[in-house]
Simulated scan of single mutants.
Amino acid sequence: LGLVDDWLCGVSDAAFVDVLPLLRRTFSAYEPGVRRTLGELVRRETAGAGTAVGGGGVPGFGGELDAVRADAVEPVVRLLLGLPAETDSDRDDLAGVAG
């Protein structure tokens, strides 16, 4: 939620209406129960009753990055951003930097 909030806050007023269909399609892919939970979390945050998103302690969200889930969405993010698909050698290069 923090990532989406930061991104939306950075969208210009003129472009905001243009990104709404993307936002709608993104959230429409979730099951109704998940959308309801996300809506409740957003409502709680905007009412000031919750912990800041990304600061940990937000119900329904882990305190740490889930690397397996993050790796699973990387190909889709690359496709959306128009980046080339990652190769095994790219992963090896990054593993050397991270290790």
Rank of each mutant, 00 (worst) to 15 (best):
F27N: 01
L38Y: 03
G10K: 13
V34D: 00
A29N: 04
G96H: 06
T87L: 07
P75A: 01
A95N: 11
D93P: 01
D90M: 02
C9F: 12
S89E: 08
G2N: 14
D5P: 05
D88A: 15
G99I: 10
L38C: 00
A67N: 04
T26M: 12
A98Q: 10
D66N: 05
R43C: 08
D90Y: 01
E86Q: 09
D71I: 03
A95G: 11
G2R: 07
D5W: 15
E64P: 03
D71N: 04
L38N: 00
V58C: 01
E31D: 08
W7Q: 12
L8T: 10
P59R: 06
R44K: 15
E74Q: 08
E74D: 04
A47D: 11
A49S: 11
R24Q: 06
G82V: 05
V76H: 13
R36Q: 06
R91A: 15
G54C: 01
G48K: 02
V17H: 14
A47K: 13
V76K: 09
R44T: 07
L38M: 08
T87K: 11
F16L: 14
P32N: 07
D6Q: 08
V34N: 02
V19S: 02
V4Y: 10
A15F: 10
E74C: 06
R25L: 09
D71L: 04
T26Y: 12
P75M: 00
P59A: 07
G48I: 02
S28N: 13
L65D: 00
G60Y: 10
L1E: 06
F16V: 11
R24S: 08
V73S: 04
P84Y: 02
R78N: 05
P21F: 11
G56T: 05
G96L: 13
V76Q: 11
A72Q: 07
S89G: 02
G63Q: 03
T26G: 11
S28A: 15
T51E: 03
S12T: 14
G10T: 11
F27T: 05
L65G: 01
L1S: 06
A47T: 10
A72L: 11
G60D: 03
D18K: 06
P32R: 15
L81G: 14
G99D: 07
E64L: 09
T46F: 12
V68L: 09
R91H: 07
R78M: 00
L20H: 12
V68R: 15
F16W: 14
V53G: 06
A70T: 04
G82R: 03
V76P: 02
T26I: 06
L3C: 08
E74K: 10
D92Y: 10
G56Q: 01
A72D: 01
L22K: 15
R35C: 12
E45G: 13
A52Q: 05
D92T: 12
P21V: 04
P21C: 09
V34R: 00
